[in-house]
């Protein structure tokens, strides 16, 4: 629980952060809420020589209604996402999912940008953002680019971010009145990471499902979409949901660990997807 010594710099702005990252190369790491980075440093599993603190970059802290979508600054804390009225009204899935992250202390420090950048398949927000088909705005020495959530998560703790880039904004759609959502997080204790989680965003028309988007938490080395179930659900009605989600685990590669075998995770993915879709169609 004693980290290796490191240097610390406060970034005054996004550009300043990019400049500091450029100066220190691979040795440097951005520090957001610190709730993923500091624990691994304390266990000496990571030992960056330089921490660049984004904590005082105030223009990364916002939640804005942009008409057709909502824009969220990367340094927005989980507790702010959880309580924001605009999100609750137009993108309830994200606000609700943020409320299930860790415990109140974690939600008061951890940020949405940190959670995405860390790229942990067991994190809750990434699978919600996949199901929402969110977009991420990234700035680097060569300017700004936008990446779709579906293209962002590459491998175990690997994302599309280059070492000298900063994730600045997250864009999520406003969900219409015909769109229902649900997140089913299955964990052992209230504050735990998900053993498995399933997010559903479901568009209804005339009593059946027109499209369904399913995001799965902790079912492989990255957050995943349950594409086979999504296909089977299109056109399904309340009576056929259970059948349609039978392949919710198709294309996943869950791990076996002390909490669950891969087999049990696959079973949970099917149960949770069914429950998520059932709840989504009813609200």
């Amino acid at each position: 629980m004693i980290p290796v010594a490191f240097e610390y710099e406060v970034a005054e702005s996004v550009d300043h952060a990019i400049e500091l990252l450029g100066q220190h190369g691979d040795e440097a790491k951005l520090l957001a809420g610190g709730h993923s980075l500091l624990p691994i440093m304390k266990l000496r599993l990571a030992a960056p020589a330089m921490l660049v603190d984004l904590g005082r970059v105030n223009d990364l802290k916002y939640i804005r209604d942009e008409g057709d979508h909502i824009a969220i600054g990367a340094m927005t804390r989980h507790c702010e996402v959880e309580r924001d009225q605009t999100l609750r009204e137009h993108c309830g899935l994200l606000a609700y999912t943020a409320s299930l992250v860790g415990d109140p202390q974690v939600r008061h420090r951890g940020t949405i940008g940190g959670s995405i950048s860390h790229g942990d398949a067991a994190s809750d927000l990434p699978s919600a953002l996949l199901a929402l088909e969110a977009e991420f705005v990234i700035r680097g020495p060569n300017g700004e680019r936008t990446v779709r959530a579906t293209d962002f998560f590459k491998d175990y703790l690997q994302t599309d971010l280059a070492p000298d880039e900063v994730l600045t904004e997250i864009r999520v759609p406003k969900l219409g009145s015909n769109t229902g959502w649900s997140y089913q997080k299955f964990n052992r204790r209230a504050q735990d990471w998900a053993v498995v989680g399933a997010c559903a965003v479901v568009e209804r028309s005339n009593g059946s499902i027109s499209t369904a988007r399913i995001g799965l938490t902790n079912m492989g080395s990255t957050p995943l979409r349950a594409t086979a179930a999504e296909r089977a659900l299109s056109g399904a009605d309340a009576g056929s949901i259970a059948d349609a989600v039978q392949n919710a685990d198709e294309g996943t590669s869950p791990s076996s660990d002390v909490a669950a075998s891969a087999e049990f995770r696959r079973h949970l993915a099917r149960v949770l997807t069914r429950r998520a879709v059932e709840q989504a169609v009813s609200r």
Binding site: Y156, S221, D249, E250, S256, D257, V258, E263
Partner: peptide, 22 residues
Amino acid sequence: EAGSREADLSGRPAQTEEGGEA
């Protein structure tokens, strides 16, 4: 069939590679 817990507990958490149907 529900798999053996002993087998799953015997090692550190490991990523399994197989995809597809359970």
